[in-house]
Design a protein around this nucleic acid. Structure first.
Lengths: 355, 355
DNA sequence: TGTTAGCACTGTCTCATGGAGAGTGCCAAG
DNA sequence: CTTGGCACTCTCCATGAGACAGTGCTAACA
């Protein structure tokens, strides 16, 4: 609806667009309301401040700007930011030197998904100077790949379950007393043979048929496997990796402690961000959510710049950054876009033609 | 040294001890300097405020108290807190009802180390209303237990390495082209046979002898295994689990944003806390570090209540909480002690007579 | 010798006050 | 449509006075 309104009744003149752009850029870098004389000074428009004042008045009436109080400068509204992001910000590439630095860091580390995510989070946080978030890549539908059992005592074993997306789930399980590694191998061989490549539904079916013959602890093992696959299939993005929380404190908007606490809570309790992140899994390119627009009221005062990454339908996650609404969007978009693309190609390299 | 000084020259009279205790308790709960009349009111000492003032004066001279400014009430110094913790706080048990709640939560979850740590962190944070930290249990010296390779594409596999402490390390490695699961099994069987139960040194030796015959990628695999074992042996506590960061913001001492930022940094960059946590691994019982005493200047304004947990020498970690120096120590000590003991006994249950 | 009442003193905190300053909206002229 | 001019409005900051809390000291008392 918002877009329609902009398109239909509110065509801005080139000068208005220019003024809006300069104002928002100035506000993003200064964090202080911008007045007509500032705009006149930094934007070489060749008109007087009075003219600019008139234009500002119009932009305010149209809802792109507000004044914090009667005689301060102007500040962008969410609608203003959205217009800025969609129409005024040119898509810039991340400077080649920064691209090189980032690539270099990625090539130095091990081929470990965990480490990739950690590094992505670190790189995003550092480059954008805000909090980053990264969710692990997940398959749309999990498949059984491999089960392995390692004895750790007479009645306990480590169960390692590798699912289709290449992630291993590790957990201690209790076995029958005096089960040795040979016994464990027999069990895992049997199920690996039966279940390889199967989906949750098929695994569940096989488990039910096969279980009549299975020992007690083996039944629990099977139950646990289906449960893990269920959890993996359930709409959930899993754990959120994050870095750079301290960066948030740089921004004056988070001096108000309550807002900061909200950010901390969002990062620690994934549930708040989950609906947003899940929606991202079906998108392409960098998506921007500004200050709790639309259905996202919960994240008032916060903007998100996010992108899906990975191999579509096979192993996709979400990465991006979170910052104040007054965020340097151009830079944020190019950073997030670059990291997403880089990690995606690394994954494709390793996972190859992997189904 | 500090203890000696206290013992030798500074015997406090019973009344002074009582006054100090009341003052610190009052300060802990109110966060505001405590004056002589407050002490008279809440502690039934049967003396006038003037007498209390005299005693306060002495306690200040001895270094247990200070005044924020000339005519405010008194506030404990670090020395005061230390005396309080060591001599005045009786060791109380956690209320039975809270013990029950905590036990209940632990019995509801899976036998997964990761989950235990997460739950410990959550319980500690919630019960103590401050930030919690938990490090994974580690063996003093790592031993090779089991290697497993799962093919995920023609040239990549998931390597799963289980070490002596039962932790699995998972990582993607590149293999020779067209290596299938059978090929991987051959490799892992060979090394499992040779290396089971071996220490880092022995593994390194075997790797060198065996490598002449090994293919290129197998060499890298071996190198990676020794590297992982080295990392595990190196003085390091691993990743720190934490919860309840937002709780810190409840305390007025962290309204000063810089202090809060320090806390965030400590939690995200384990290196700052590592020396402290490592030292904890050789202790028994709950240890208390108050406001960067002694060698811990870096953690000024913060107190730690920590305890080792797990099975000594086999799999020990550290858990505890971090909060303002003005911390309800009695409660903190009993909470940390209880959780450490509980997790320890759960681990003993599962790992059993496990070497 | 230890305790107490009384009192002057010292610092913080809060609130009101009054410019200074920034930026606006509007008007009338170009 | 643009511009200079100007009254107006609101915040911000420094200042100062008064309330308040709690002290240290002194002198009297048991």
């Amino acid at each position: 609806m918002a877009e329609e309104a902009i398109a239909a009744e509110e065509r801005l003149t080139p000068r208005q667009r220019e003024i809006l752009k300069i104002l928002i850029q100035a506000y993003i870098s200064s964090a202080e309301p911008v007045g007509s004389s500032t705009i006149q000074r930094i934007g070489q428009l060749g008109v007087s401040s009075a003219t600019i004042r008139n234009e500002l008045c119009i932009l305010e009436e149209l809802g792109y700007l507000t004044q914090p109080y009667t005689s301060a400068g102007r500040v962008p509204t969410i609608k203003g930011y959205r217009y800025f992001v969609e129409q005024l910000v040119g898509r810039v590439e991340l400077p080649a030197s920064e691209q090189r630095t980032i690539r270099h860091q990625f090539h130095q580390i091990r081929l470990h998904l965990d480490q990739w995510m950690r590094l992505s989070a670190a790189v995003l946080a550092q480059t954008s100077r805000s909090v980053s978030l990264v969710t692990p890549p997940r398959a749309a539908r999990s498949r059984f790949r491999h089960l392995h059992l390692v004895s750790i005592s007479q009645r306990a074993a480590v169960m390692i379950l590798v699912l289709g997306d290449g992630r291993a789930h590790e957990e201690v399980i209790l076995t029958a007393d005096y089960t040795d590694q040979d016994g464990l191998n027999q069990v895992s061989n049997r199920w690996n043979h039966t279940l390889r490549g199967r989906s949750l539904r098929e695994v569940r079916a096989s488990a039910e048929t096969g279980l009549a013959s299975a020992e007690g602890w083996e039944g629990e093992l099977l139950a646990r496997i289906t449960q893990l696959m269920e959890e993996s299939d359930r709409a959930s993005v899993g754990e959120i990796y994050s870095d750079g929380l301290a960066n948030v404190l740089r921004h004056p908007e988070f001096l108000e402690i309550e807002r900061f606490r909200r950010v901390v809570n969002m990062l620690q309790h994934a549930s708040l961000l989950e609906p947003i992140l899940l929606r991202m899994l079906n998108t392409n390119g960098v998506q921007i959510i500004i200050g709790g627009e639309g259905p996202y009221e919960a994240i008032e005062h916060v903007s998100l710049v996010l992108s899906r990454y990975g191999i579509k339908h096979t192993a996709s996650g979400v990465l991006g950054i979170m910052g104040p609404v007054r965020m340097p969007y151009a830079r944020a978009i190019s950073t997030v876009g670059y990291v997403a693309q880089l990690v995606g190609s690394l994954m494709a390299d390793v996972y190859g033609a992997y189904a």
